[in-house]
Design a protein around this nucleic acid. Structure first.
Lengths: 216, 216
DNA sequence: GCAAAAACATTCCCGTGAGTATGTTTCTAC
DNA sequence: GTAGAAACATACTCACGGGAATGTTTTTGC
């Protein structure tokens, strides 16, 4: 039961143990992306690891719990990439572009995780979820709101500074998230594409998105 | 078996029959939105109609088939709203804004259908689908591409006319779709909101999106 | 007004997959 | 080196839901 496994659980979890958990989470994300949250069976996740159910249920109490952990991991990837940029002492438009670019990269780099999040989100877990699980989910959704709030902060920053023209900060935040997260719907990992290709995608996308908010 | 039921099937379908089908599709969309594609059971869809399974399986061969029909309906809503605007003799930027606004309205007005589409899309049906069903799905995906192509056409139009500055038509199309479709993720129908509120949302959103593509 | 088919309701079957129970092996602490 | 717990594998249970089979009622064509 790793429900609170965001940080170390103060339990006797060996180095090998948490490493095994990590692999399970990753395998689950891949399976979720391939077949969806429901179609992906626990047996399949285990098979992806070259293992069996026993291993999975030794580390996680339920399939829902695995999903929640994938969710948390996905959000952490986002925060880790964007939070450092907030302290940059640059105009809001440029900061926004930097943030959006970083977010785009995260989308592409951690595709299975980000895609899993979009597959149902809160719709999944309806009914078939314990009270504890639902509580964790609420926390994760709040986490997601906090993330979007980062963008709103910079939007407001630019609005008051006069470098941005934002008719509705809330709506602009939604727009930015939508345009960026849409990446996971159409982006496909191809072996022939280089690092530069992904850079180009992220940068062009970010520039187009923020462009519509720049003050004339 | 209404697999080809896009248009009249040249079969003996009474007026009452197709009306019943329509209601089933609608109820299914609502259920899919509520509980997701898998969690929503056929029994639940029937219950939503104040009916039973028998009725549903009389009109549709499988749950998959219902989903496909919801998909098609969702796409038709989009085409119906946007196709007429293509013939307008106005500059590309304005035309794009009009199209985006119309699309935004469709998202809000037919929320259950549009949300259903996003819940898995092609990921659903993987494996558990007959050859015929997969074929229909391919057609629907093509339909979706055609729809996005409408936007790309206008984008290219503006690019050659010099009214738009689009570094990548393909990417811009993706961006527009992502930003607009994101609506179904956060928009919630509230009783107190008026027609004007939705107008405002659609227009502001469209303006922000297209704004980033305008030629300086 | 009467077959016959359409439009349902009712009942049952049966695979699938989440979760459990139990066994086996590997590691760790002392 | 030897308990004992962690880290798995194996085998089983069991509810749930898709779909089929079958019955009942309503409509339609002639």
């Amino acid at each position: 039961m790793a429900l609170v496994a965001g940080e170390l659980d103060a339990r006797h979890v060996s180095r090998r143990g948490i490493e095994s958990q990590r692999k399970i989470i990753h395998a689950a994300a891949v399976c979720f992306m391939r077949h969806g949250l429901e179609k992906a069976t626990v047996d399949e996740i285990a098979q992806e690891l070259g293992s069996t159910k026993g291993r999975v249920y030794h580390h996680f109490a339920s399939k829902n719990e695995i999903y929640l952990e994938v969710y948390r991991q996905a959000m952490e990837y986002c925060f880790d990439a964007v939070l450092p940029l907030l302290d940059l002492d640059i105009p809001a438009p440029e900061k926004l572009v930097r943030m959006a670019t970083a977010h785009g990269h995260v989308m592409m780099d951690t595709l299975p995780f980000q895609r899993t999040i979009r597959l149902g989100v809160d719709v999944y877990l309806r009914g078939s979820a314990t009270e504890a699980e639902r509580k964790v989910l609420s926390g994760l959704i709040a986490m997601r709101n906090d993330y979007e709030a980062l963008y709103r902060t910079v939007l407001q920053e630019g609005q008051t500074a006069g470098t941005l023209s934002v008719p509705s900060v809330a709506l602009a935040g939604r727009m930015i998230m939508g345009a960026l997260n849409g990446l996971v719907d159409w982006y496909r990992v191809r072996p022939e594409q280089s690092r530069e290709d992904r850079d180009k995608i992220a940068e062009l996308l970010a520039e187009m998105i923020v462009g519509g908010l720049r003050a004339d």
